[in-house]
Design a protein around this nucleic acid. Structure first.
Lengths: 209, 209
DNA sequence: TAGATTGTTAATCGATTAACAATC
DNA sequence: TAGATTGTTAATCGATTAACAATC
């Protein structure tokens, strides 16, 4: 199929549908109309129908959407029906926080090892994760089918690290370093920039609303 | 001044200008045109001029922009010319990672205390932060002029926590709990939803680009 | 002055909302 | 069947890009 191009605006709403549908399911709600969903998720009913119809006609006229079925569809759309192997580089506070968050593993993202340049912790096990030497990263990526690199080191080493991991075969980067990585076509980078987020809060607090 | 309304699209670009201008300054570059900046930041020159002109005419025809002056202007626009007192609730892995990130303090955001419901750590000091009892949060907010609440607890307690803190006087919430908080007008919420970010990466990796 | 580059208006593009025929 | 609600087209709104006069 000649994949229709989906705008980033739509893509960034998908995880929110996923989250709210899960909540509905947990609350035993099995059927919902775009109008009802709009009231709890905060998008317009029209936008919800437009968004979903980018991917297929999941609803039924006169009825609405089956919550479980729609949840399943969106899970598939998000690629959550497969497993991903990941490694995390930079086992500091933030790196360990992310590694230990069980939600990611439950969603199919398995962190296979942590890497850290600090010789004092290389070889240790922290919360069931082996801490390995970054020198050995490429070999590990190749031998363990690692698709995702999670970058939790300061900004200075991030670009070089990314390049090494890409050369070794990873396809996606979840980047917590405050730097815009330059990567070849086909490599996906998703940034989490905490400073940018905090500064946005600061801007909005300054305005007199 | 009857504040012109700035779109979120523009607002979310501001921290990026701030970051790149800082980098230019650090590299000893004191003058830049919108065209040159566009090449390093990845926005069009036209967009850069439009964005900046929402806030003032910071450039000079025939010359471009003075990097230091523009950096100062954007710092002010972001509200970084003042200090903010914050508290963080939920001193787990993620909470401690955020509390210990020195960049925030350097930018004027001071975390005055951590709060955690775990009786085993209440009263302790972790990395210079007092761990306090959440029971005492309201009093602490009032006595220490706390403006920002950082939420690092699981989603279930987040809404109630936010309401208590708002009643006690906080104005902004930096929310790491995967839930959309309902807050009164005038209270600012900035969400960091790691799961949504990871799922976006997953979606993009699934597509054959 | 001549050249460069901004500030700003106008044109275009894309995303959201509205409307309604199709249909369950 | 009648009522409800989708899927989808058309209209609107907003954001980005292009163009150029103003001006340093």
């Amino acid at each position: 199929m000649p994949n229709k191009i989906i705008s980033m605006a739509v893509i960034r709403r998908l995880p929110k549908y996923h989250r709210y549908l899960k909540e509905l399911l947990d609350n035993g709600i099995h059927r919902i109309s775009s109008k009802e969903l709009s009231e709890i998720i905060g998008f317009t009913a029209s936008q919800i129908r437009q968004d979903l119809n980018n991917f297929g006609g999941f609803g039924q006229q006169g009825y609405g959407y089956n919550v479980g079925a729609l949840y399943g569809e969106i899970s598939k759309i998000l690629g959550l029906d497969k497993k991903y192997n990941a490694i995390l580089v930079g086992a500091g506070n933030l790196g360990q926080a992310i590694a230990n968050y069980s939600g990611f593993r439950n969603a199919g993202f398995e962190i296979k090892a942590l890497f850290d340049a600090n010789p004092k912790i290389i070889g240790l096990k922290i919360n069931y994760f082996d801490i390995l030497d970054p020198e050995d990263m490429e070999t590990f990526i190749k031998e363990n089918n690692i698709e995702i690199l999670i970058i939790c080191i300061p900004k200075n080493g991030a670009q070089v690290l990314a390049e090494r991991a890409i050369k070794a075969g990873i396809k996606g980067i979840w980047n917590f370093a405050p730097v815009d990585l330059k990567v070849p076509n086909g490599i996906i980078v998703e940034n989490v920039n905490l400073t940018e987020s905090l500064f946005t809060l600061s801007y909005l607090m300054k305005e007199e609303y």
